[in-house]
């Protein structure tokens, strides 16, 4: 019988590389699910939920793969619900509260652009399972990028209020983006083994896409600051604990439960 004791995922750098992607999708999906029933218009409720579903789907595929990769044979749910906070490797940006609609669509645009670029490169991964997941996920990321990007433009070039809110969102989010492109041993290992690109390699194309988008929305790229978030390494913001409290509650409260 399973218990609800936390599991220890592998320290293997290949597993960690995939977990960074998996957890980023999982936690962003979790945040987007919060919009259900509260979006500005019914059509967007459906669209945001659709994005959440896609991200959860990507997380499931990746977590299942990690479970097989590291030899411990954990399943997607054990990994999703029974890790300690420091073992979640999502970038900090996605755990931030959903904010207003401007914050949500801008974050979606930033993450979708990043994921699109990542999936495009990962389609050539020597890990065939990861390549297959990437091949499917890139289509979803492209759609998310288009949907979120169109909204960024509408809000940037809409009313003074929407412009101001988008600007505020950009100010809040920008300093969480450098984390996306900082390399460490996990990236080095991935590049050397043909698992996937260093995330730093995605920075050029990401900035190019974002510049085009923000330009069209009438916003300037903010200046970089010295602030660095560290979620990728398991050191999260204060928001992460609360997300996990909610997300893990049933698994922890009903040890050995079958759902």
């Amino acid at each position: 019988m399973q218990t609800s004791t936390s599991i220890q995922p592998s320290r293997d750098p290949a597993a960690q590389y995939v977990l960074r992607l998996a957890d980023t999708c999982l936690i962003l999906g979790q945040r987007l699910g919060e919009w259900c029933g509260h979006a500005p218009v019914l059509e967007e409720d459906i669209a945001l939920t659709n994005t959440a579903l896609d991200l959860i789907g990507q997380a499931r595929a990746l977590l299942t793969h990690v479970g097989q990769m590291d030899g411990q044979a954990h399943d997607e749910d054990q990994l999703a619900f029974l890790r300690e906070e420091r073992d979640y490797l999502n970038v900090t940006m996605v755990e931030l509260p959903r904010g207003d609609f401007a914050f949500t669509v801008l974050r979606n645009a930033m993450v979708a652009t990043f994921l699109k670029l990542a999936w495009q490169r990962l389609a050539g991964s020597l890990d065939t399972e990861l390549a297959a997941i990437a091949g499917k996920a890139v289509k979803e990321a492209r759609y998310h990028q288009q949907h979120a990007g169109d909204w960024v433009v509408r809000l940037g070039d809409g009313t003074p209020e929407s412009r101001q809110r988008l600007d505020a969102a950009l100010g809040q989010l920008w300093r969480y983006t450098p984390e996306l492109f900082e390399d460490d041993a996990v990236d080095a290992h991935a590049a050397a083994s043909g698992l996937g690109p260093r995330w730093s390699e995605l920075q050029g194309p990401w900035r190019a896409d974002m510049t085009l988008l923000l330009d069209e929305a009438g916003l300037a790229l903010p200046t970089d600051s010295a602030f660095r978030s560290t979620g990728k390494r398991g050191l999260h913001s204060e928001h992460m604990g609360h997300i996990l409290t909610e997300m893990q509650y049933l698994q922890r409260a009903y040890p050995g439960g079958v759902w």
């Binding site: 059509e43 459906i46 669209a47 509408r154």
Partner: peptide, 20 residues
């Protein structure tokens, strides 16, 4: 039918609502 502010949104929403 559905409500959308512009043609691009209309197509995307149509995809989200009617081709699930």
């Amino acid at each position: 039918s559905l409500h959308a502010a512009d043609p691009k949104m209309a197509i995307q929403l149509a995809r989200d609502v009617y081709t699930r």
